[in-house]
Amino acid sequence: MAGLNGVTISILLFGIGLLGVIFRRDLVVKLLALGLINSAAILCLVSLGARPDGAPPILVPPTATAIVDPLPQAIVLSAIVINFAILALALVFVMLLVERYHTTDSHRIERETAAEEEPWD
């Protein structure tokens, strides 16, 4: 079934993304890996809605016997937009961190934030 192959790929991508978030130190790469995780979840949802020989659910030809499920595609649009917004805002925050610490290395940033004493005003 087309749906199950897509699911397998999405689980693989999810795993690769997780490895990226855990083992890569660069913040931008972490965000890319997070994007990969989100894309994997989206792929899973879309491929579960797939039907073999299904027609696209937009302009259905009169001879079509099966139509791909439109609901996962609709909800995935929301998910894509949300992930886009999160990625954009997270990149702004990474920019602010780079301005201050001049590095995107998460271990260095962790050490430096732990070391400084922040005065409370």
Binding site: F14, L18, V21, L34, I37, N38, A40, A41, I42, C44, L45, A79, N83, I86
Partner: peptide, 10 residues
């Protein structure tokens, strides 16, 4: 949280 919500979406 984004990771958690990906689990939720799955």
């Amino acid at each position: 949280c984004s990771l958690g919500m990906s689990f939720f979406l799955l």
